[in-house]
Design a protein around this nucleic acid. Structure first.
Lengths: 245, 245
DNA sequence: GAAAATTTGTACGTATGTATC
DNA sequence: AGATACATACGTACAAATTTT
């Protein structure tokens, strides 16, 4: 039997608002499961359709997501990762109130191919250091990176990176006090099996790929590709702000 | 019978290089099909495995892609789309030597929701103009956009946009001579059925999503989301260049 | 590992108030 | 004023995916 329709706001809208504020209040924390649609319907005293309508708006807004047979879960808000000419991973994460973490998957030293040499302003055959790393925020993987460094120009860098575990520190020990990002290219890809496994994502999840070059006094010191788990990170930048170190 | 191994560069590498330069020379234009693996093997006088090894590197680099039973096809190089505080679609495309095009899918004028009002510094209930557009480069769709404009602040904007078909022109007719992009957020998504159909992509293709706000004299004039077909566009930006109009 | 229970997704239908032509 | 379309809401049933037994 239809409810008297003499209302200012629709039922589903007020239910959506209630759920929204309950999530905002931390009543349903990130990753937690909402009550089942049947439960919510009973609690609000409405039909299941009405609850579904409310939930649809939360899903649309990326606040929750539902899995058939499993339930509706609160999504964690993606980390804002500001891109600037002075991108520093640890600093970015601490500024966002998250615990930064980095795991080195592999470090190899080998001779540069033609394309790699070009990107680092070297000659093919020169030694480069290639580092594969996995970055974490609060123990959750957020990005997978493949970074190329001109080992020939900075001998001992690979060893420094192995012991220091921070790019900025390792560069400092080989004499690169400061460096700036000079070029950034952005595209989107689909996670392959390897990437998905490292990032703990389903295969086929959307990834944000950045390709960037950093220089120190006009000389390239790094060229790298980084694949971000797009549902955990949002890259941001504004041209106004001149952020200082 | 194995070939004498006393060689400087491996066979597959020189074959890959030959194919690369053939593609670069325009011998195999964008979208065209390479000779079959059997043909290439015969032409280079090697085993089909060797050709496959060479092709694998081209596929890895995103230069070509292969479809079982169909062939190997030359991919078109993605358009470089520079992001700056002064992003102008038509100008960006002409600078890249492409033919810009824009199709207006829908323009609606309605009252702003709470979230929309916040983004445009308005009050909920104020009138906004929402435009759904599709952008083309050389008649190929590259981006799908949903733009929000403060109609209440600039009465007549919707009509201006309907007749002018350029955001910059339409803003000019309502008195906004210049505007700058103040905020940009980036993420990656998967194309849904609607997006895929408009962009002429397979469902599930990776999209690059930008969310941006533009202001004129500190007052918001546009808030929009743009979904780029990631295999056709690469967003770029460098902090060095101060590009002038 | 198979079966059962749980939970979301989809589809049919009904009814009524509200806005539009 | 009447016809028509739309939004809201309830009822029921079954399919499909997941979790639990």
């Amino acid at each position: 039997m239809p409810r008297s329709a003499n209302v200012l706001t629709p039922l589903w809208k007020s239910i959506a608002a209630t759920l929204r504020s309950a999530i905002a209040d931390g009543q349903y924390p990130e990753g937690s499961r909402l009550p089942t649609e049947a439960d919510l319907a009973a609690r609000f005293g409405v039909n299941r359709h009405t609850v579904r309508h409310a939930l649809a708006t939360l899903i649309e807004d990326g606040l929750v997501h539902s899995r058939r047979g499993s339930g509706t879960f609160v999504l964690s808000k993606p980390l804002d990762y500001p891109l600037s000419e002075r991108v520093r991973f640890h600093r970015n994460l601490r500024d966002a109130g998250r615990l930064p973490g980095r795991e080195i998957l592999a470090i190899e030293v080998r001779t540069a191919t033609e394309a790699e040499a070009r990107r680092l302003s070297m000659t093919p055959g020169d030694e480069i250091c290639v580092a594969h790393t996995l970055s974490f925020a609060d123990h959750t993987p957020i990005a997978l990176a493949e970074s190329h460094f001109p080992e020939a120009r900075h001998p001992g860098f690979a060893d420094a990176l192995r012991s220091s575990r921070s790019v900025t520190d390792a560069l400092a020990t080989v004499g690169v006090a400061d460096y700036l990002r000079t070029e950034t290219r952005l595209s989107a890809t689909i996670a392959n099996a390897t990437q998905a496994s490292h990032l703990r994502l389903p295969e086929g999840a959307p990834l944000l790929l950045t390709e960037s070059r950093s220089e120190s006094d006009g000389v390239p010191v790094e060229w790298g590709q980084t694949w971000f788990a797009s549902d955990r990170v949002t890259l941001t930048f504004d041209f106004q702000r001149d952020q200082l170190p």
